[in-house]
Deep mutational scan, measured.
Amino acid sequence: TTITITINGEELRIRGDHEEIHKILKAWEEDHNDEEIVRLIRELAER
Results as ranks from 00 to 15, higher is better:
45 A>V: 08
12 L>D: 00
29 E>V: 11
13 R>D: 05
8 N>C: 07
6 T>Q: 08
32 H>R: 15
3 I>E: 02
17 D>R: 06
14 I>R: 01
7 I>N: 01
27 A>W: 12
2 T>D: 11
36 E>Y: 09
19 E>V: 10
38 V>M: 12
47 R>C: 15
36 E>D: 12
31 D>K: 08
9 G>R: 02
33 N>L: 15
5 I>K: 00
7 I>V: 07
7 I>Q: 01
25 L>Q: 05
44 L>T: 01
44 L>F: 06
19 E>H: 11
27 A>S: 08
1 T>H: 14
40 L>V: 10
19 E>N: 10
18 H>S: 14
1 T>C: 07
21 I>H: 01
41 I>N: 00
10 E>M: 08
31 D>H: 12
21 I>T: 03
33 N>G: 11
2 T>F: 11
45 A>R: 02
4 T>K: 12
30 E>Y: 11
21 I>N: 01
34 D>S: 09
30 E>V: 10
42 R>K: 15
39 R>T: 08
8 N>W: 06
42 R>S: 05
35 E>A: 11
9 G>K: 02
3 I>K: 04
4 T>S: 09
7 I>L: 08
8 N>I: 03
45 A>T: 04
15 R>K: 11
20 E>Y: 05
15 R>Y: 14
38 V>E: 12
1 T>L: 14
38 V>R: 07
19 E>A: 11
35 E>S: 07
8 N>H: 10
12 L>T: 03
36 E>F: 06
3 I>L: 11
18 H>T: 12
9 G>V: 02
36 E>N: 11
7 I>M: 07
34 D>L: 13
34 D>W: 10
13 R>I: 15
27 A>V: 07
16 G>V: 09
47 R>M: 15
4 T>N: 06
10 E>L: 09
30 E>G: 06
37 I>C: 03
16 G>M: 07
18 H>E: 13
19 E>I: 08
8 N>R: 10
29 E>R: 13
3 I>G: 02
29 E>H: 09
27 A>R: 12
33 N>D: 10
7 I>H: 03
40 L>W: 04
1 T>Q: 13
15 R>C: 05
12 L>N: 02
38 V>D: 05
16 G>I: 11
41 I>K: 00
1 T>R: 10
38 V>S: 07
14 I>P: 01
31 D>R: 09
12 L>I: 09
26 K>L: 13
39 R>S: 07
1 T>K: 10
21 I>P: 00
24 I>C: 02
5 I>N: 00
36 E>Q: 06
37 I>R: 02
31 D>G: 13
2 T>G: 05
8 N>S: 09
9 G>Q: 04
8 N>K: 07
37 I>S: 02
31 D>Y: 08
7 I>D: 00
10 E>C: 08
29 E>A: 05
45 A>N: 06
14 I>Y: 02
2 T>M: 14
14 I>G: 01
5 I>W: 02
21 I>K: 00
23 K>G: 10
27 A>P: 00
43 E>W: 12
29 E>Q: 13
21 I>L: 13
26 K>Q: 14
6 T>K: 12
45 A>K: 02
26 K>P: 00
42 R>A: 08
25 L>H: 03
26 K>V: 10
30 E>H: 10
9 G>I: 02
1 T>E: 14
5 I>Y: 01
1 T>W: 11
44 L>S: 02
34 D>T: 08
7 I>S: 01
19 E>F: 10
25 L>I: 10
33 N>C: 07
8 N>G: 12
17 D>Y: 10
5 I>A: 01
2 T>R: 04
47 R>S: 15
39 R>G: 05
1 T>D: 10
9 G>C: 05
46 E>W: 03
13 R>Y: 06
1 T>N: 10
11 E>M: 08
18 H>L: 13
3 I>S: 02
33 N>M: 15
30 E>M: 13
17 D>A: 07
15 R>S: 13
38 V>G: 06
43 E>K: 03
46 E>Y: 05
28 W>F: 06
38 V>I: 14
22 H>R: 12
11 E>K: 09
41 I>M: 05
28 W>Q: 02
26 K>A: 14
34 D>V: 14
10 E>R: 06
29 E>T: 10
3 I>D: 01
1 T>F: 09
40 L>P: 00
36 E>S: 08
25 L>F: 08
34 D>F: 13
46 E>Q: 03
24 I>T: 03
24 I>Y: 03
32 H>K: 15
25 L>R: 04
3 I>Q: 03
23 K>Y: 11
17 D>W: 08
25 L>A: 04
25 L>C: 04
29 E>D: 09
15 R>E: 11
32 H>I: 10
41 I>R: 00
4 T>G: 02
46 E>H: 04
20 E>A: 04
16 G>D: 05
33 N>W: 15
37 I>N: 04
17 D>M: 08
10 E>A: 07
31 D>V: 06
2 T>A: 08
30 E>W: 10
28 W>H: 03
22 H>L: 15
1 T>A: 12
10 E>I: 10
27 A>C: 03
11 E>H: 09
29 E>P: 02
2 T>P: 03
28 W>K: 01
16 G>F: 05
32 H>N: 13
13 R>P: 04
18 H>G: 11
5 I>M: 05
1 T>I: 14
47 R>W: 15
5 I>E: 00
33 N>S: 10
4 T>W: 14
43 E>T: 04
18 H>M: 13
29 E>F: 10
11 E>Y: 07
7 I>G: 00
16 G>H: 03
26 K>N: 10
7 I>A: 01
41 I>F: 04
39 R>N: 09
22 H>G: 10
10 E>T: 11
20 E>R: 02
25 L>E: 02
11 E>Q: 12
23 K>F: 11
20 E>W: 06
45 A>I: 13
45 A>C: 14
23 K>E: 10
47 R>Q: 15
25 L>Y: 07
4 T>D: 03
35 E>R: 06
35 E>Y: 07
12 L>S: 02
3 I>A: 06
9 G>Y: 04
42 R>V: 09
37 I>A: 07
41 I>A: 03
29 E>W: 09
21 I>Y: 03
2 T>I: 14
11 E>P: 10
12 L>K: 02
31 D>A: 09
31 D>P: 03
21 I>W: 06
39 R>W: 05
26 K>M: 13
27 A>E: 06
30 E>A: 14
24 I>H: 02
47 R>L: 15
8 N>D: 12
43 E>P: 00
34 D>I: 13
13 R>L: 07
6 T>G: 02
6 T>A: 06
40 L>I: 13
37 I>E: 00
14 I>M: 04
19 E>G: 09
9 G>N: 05
14 I>L: 13
40 L>N: 02
20 E>G: 05
23 K>S: 07
10 E>W: 05
12 L>M: 09
1 T>M: 13
2 T>S: 11
41 I>T: 01
43 E>N: 03
35 E>N: 08
30 E>D: 13
16 G>S: 09
24 I>G: 00
22 H>Y: 11
3 I>C: 03
12 L>C: 02
21 I>G: 01
7 I>C: 12
21 I>V: 09
24 I>P: 00
26 K>Y: 05
27 A>G: 07
6 T>P: 02
43 E>R: 03
19 E>W: 05
47 R>G: 15
47 R>H: 15
28 W>E: 00
30 E>R: 13
8 N>F: 07
13 R>A: 09
45 A>L: 13
18 H>A: 14
10 E>G: 04
43 E>S: 03
14 I>C: 02
1 T>Y: 15
47 R>Y: 15
10 E>S: 05
35 E>P: 15
31 D>L: 11
46 E>A: 04
28 W>V: 03
29 E>I: 12
22 H>T: 14
33 N>F: 15
22 H>P: 02
5 I>Q: 00
39 R>H: 05
32 H>F: 09
18 H>Q: 13
9 G>S: 04
45 A>F: 03
39 R>A: 09
30 E>F: 12
16 G>T: 06
47 R>A: 15
29 E>S: 10
33 N>H: 13
3 I>Y: 08
43 E>H: 04
37 I>T: 10
22 H>I: 04
29 E>C: 04
16 G>P: 02
46 E>S: 03
43 E>F: 06
24 I>F: 05
3 I>M: 08
12 L>F: 15
34 D>G: 10
28 W>N: 01
33 N>T: 12
35 E>H: 10
36 E>M: 05
26 K>W: 07
6 T>I: 14
22 H>A: 12
6 T>E: 09
43 E>L: 06
5 I>G: 00
3 I>V: 12
36 E>L: 07
13 R>K: 13
46 E>I: 06
46 E>N: 05
4 T>C: 10
1 T>G: 09
44 L>D: 01
21 I>R: 01
14 I>H: 01
29 E>Y: 13
17 D>F: 11
21 I>E: 01
17 D>I: 05
42 R>G: 05
4 T>Q: 06
31 D>N: 14
3 I>H: 06
24 I>R: 01
32 H>M: 15
36 E>K: 06
40 L>C: 05
41 I>Q: 00
28 W>I: 07
1 T>S: 12
44 L>Q: 02
19 E>R: 06
28 W>T: 01
30 E>S: 12
34 D>R: 11
23 K>W: 14
24 I>E: 00
24 I>S: 01
39 R>L: 09
35 E>K: 07
12 L>Y: 15
11 E>A: 08
1 T>P: 08
11 E>F: 07
34 D>N: 15
36 E>G: 08
31 D>E: 06
41 I>W: 03
36 E>V: 07
14 I>Q: 00
22 H>K: 14
19 E>D: 12
14 I>D: 00
22 H>S: 12
25 L>G: 01
18 H>C: 14
23 K>D: 06
32 H>A: 12
34 D>C: 14
15 R>A: 11
24 I>K: 01
5 I>F: 09
47 R>V: 15
47 R>I: 15
4 T>L: 11
46 E>C: 09
33 N>V: 14
5 I>H: 00
35 E>M: 11
39 R>P: 01
29 E>G: 07
11 E>S: 09
16 G>E: 03
41 I>G: 00
26 K>D: 07
19 E>Y: 11
